[in-house]
Write a protein that binds this DNA or RNA. Sequence first.
DNA 1: TCCAACTTAATTGTGTGCAATCTTTATGGA
DNA 2: TCCATAAAGATTGCACACAATTAAGTTGGA
Lengths: 162, 162
Amino acid sequence: MTTAPSALPDLAAVPDAELLRLDHQVCFSLHAASRAFGGYYRRALKDLGLTYSQYLVMLVLWEQGPQAVKAIGERLHLDSGTLSPLLKRLESAGLVRRERSREDERSVVIELTDEGAGLRERALSVPRGVLAATGLSLEEVLGLQEVLGRLTGALGEAVDAD
Amino acid sequence: MTTAPSALPDLAAVPDAELLRLDHQVCFSLHAASRAFGGYYRRALKDLGLTYSQYLVMLVLWEQGPQAVKAIGERLHLDSGTLSPLLKRLESAGLVRRERSREDERSVVIELTDEGAGLRERALSVPRGVLAATGLSLEEVLGLQEVLGRLTGALGEAVDAD
DNA sequence: TCCAACTTAATTGTGTGCAATCTTTATGGA
DNA sequence: TCCATAAAGATTGCACACAATTAAGTTGGA
């Protein structure tokens, strides 16, 4: 199964062609897992009339209250190019209000409507089903989060240092 | 299944509101990590003129040789709605050929052109940089792949059983 | 043999995700 | 004060991702 640390090959000694395959597994397995999650949520959220990304935005609003678009973007690593149309759809659906801030007219504050706030009750049952569907133990979930968080941070820095 | 150490809470005992937060972390961290990977690849593959998804398709072709669209789709968990336009772009770029199979006229076989096959040489240097940028050890990468693979499989089954 | 059911791709429509650009508003230094 | 610069969103353009539908080809059973 897992080989002892000393038996692990030195990364520098692994040939390029081998890495091209290993690499395939890494980026691909992440890509596939993310989309598998999306597929599960798509069904679970259908009744609520939310997409996966819209659900993430609603989570931020449910947890943190009224937010500027900028703040939501920082929390979710999304820019206005993605958020602007998404928030307009949530507004059309009657779940949020968009209002120019009075202190800073550049910024737009997103606020839940009563309907948007009320939707939280119906969303409460979703996560348990998702966790069950992953088939992962609580330990594995926590470990996964930790590794993914580090990975995201490292990749972000690598891109910035580009 | 691993039995949780006594210190870990029983999942059934965790309240819904808490799971709504934990859940946030799981789906979100995966979403963020996947996009961080995409961001890194976008830059790394720019010289090759490939997008992240096009790179995945090229990996399949480099490894497995000529493939029907169907087979590529199964390998990458993508359907023709995604692959058809993507493959046409690869064809326009001169990297692949698309030909109706003679045995089964329904299927379209994708084959690398000389240029497409030659691109592999230039792609060989990409994975090492990516692995370095993740900041993960080889063990962690392997562990991550294993967990993600199980997760994808479990979520896929859960959706199918829907 | 013939046709209904299935299979394979392509197409259509919606919703991200992101780079690049534009508009409006704020800020800070000469 | 005035203006260059920066910041916040919105918009545009391109490329996935996926559900739903369509078109063309295959297969199997009555």
